[in-house]
């Protein structure tokens, strides 16, 4: 499992995270949600060790602050928000970088399989720099998937950390990517994603952490976290949560009371 305790993080004098506790279980798809500037991406950066924090982050029994780079690369893959490349790599060459970690070294067949998984099987020979933002994002996801192709290894779960994985995508591909993440979790891996879209979160995620003003407001199942009052308070706008009998939870911003505010 992933357990973060009492995470404080400051940029200069401005404190972004105030003593956040956060946990995610393997076998589950956990989302971090919250309004712009709430600190959800910053929390992600602490969880993957990209920013200096005080507190403790333990991933599968390892303190990530002291673990070796290659040890971490063997148990987790990280998808950044956007990646620009300085050189004209082809799509296949970018995905192949995922085999660098040593765990997947030499497994060239994973490249084609990962591209197939993200719906870009025919793109292998194209130049990465010439793709659209959404296509680039899916290529990067394929790269991360080759790194941790099996959701478990030696009986231990592996992890995917996804920073806004669907923000650049159309609705069709949003569903594809969310399904990939959910399948990874169902197969025993752990997934943590920063999410903007609350409806997709409600549809696919098992656990939701709601962050507001650098603090954890609540963590639980989508139905526990997504209630009118809490969301309206966090996002500073009126939100109505609907639960139609046939499908899961979905949310609507409530235009009428926006005006009242």
């Amino acid at each position: 499992m992933l357990k973060a305790t009492n995470i404080n993080l400051s940029y200069g004098k401005r404190q972004i995270l105030h003593g956040v506790d956060f946990a995610a279980q393997s076998g589950e798809f956990t989302a971090i949600v919250g309004p712009n500037g709430s600190g959800k991406t910053t929390l992600m950066k602490a969880l993957i060790g990209e920013e200096e924090y005080s507190g403790e982050v333990i991933l599968e029994g390892r303190n990530i602050a002291t673990a070796k780079t290659w040890e971490l690369a063997a148990v987790r893959g990280v998808l950044p928000q956007a990646t620009a490349l300085a050189f004209p790599f082809t799509v296949a060459e970018v995905v192949r970088l995922g085999l660098t970690s040593g765990v997947s070294a030499g497994r060239e067949n994973l490249v084609g399989m990962a591209l197939e998984r993200v719906g870009l099987a025919t793109y292998a020979g194209r130049l990465y720099q010439e793709l659209s933002g959404g296509e680039q994002q899916r290529v990067q996801l394929a790269r991360v998937l080759t790194q941790v192709w099996e959701p478990t290894a030696h009986g231990k779960p592996r992890w995917l950390f996804l920073d806004e994985p669907v923000s650049a995508l159309d609705i069709g591909h949003q569903l594809v990517v969310m399904q990939i993440a959910q399948d990874f979790a169902r197969a025993g891996g752990g997934v943590v994603a920063v999410m903007h879209d609350l409806n997709l979160t409600a549809m696919f995620c098992d656990s939701v952490a709601l962050i507001s003003q650098g603090q954890l407001m609540r963590q639980g199942t989508p139905s526990e976290v997504f209630c009118d009052e809490l969301l309206s308070q966090a996002y500073h706008c009126a939100v109505r949560v609907n639960t139609p009998p046939a499908s899961g939870t979905f949310l609507l911003p409530h235009a009428a009371s926006l005006a009242a505010e």
């Binding site: 993957i48 290659w70 950044p80 990646t83 490349l85 995922g98 660098t100 970690s101």
Partner: peptide
């Protein structure tokens, strides 16, 4: 080529 952070995530001793 992916950036320093992403390089370290794939196991490169940056």
């Amino acid at each position: 080529a992916l950036g320093e952070a992403a390089a370290s995530h794939i196991g490169v001793p940056v």
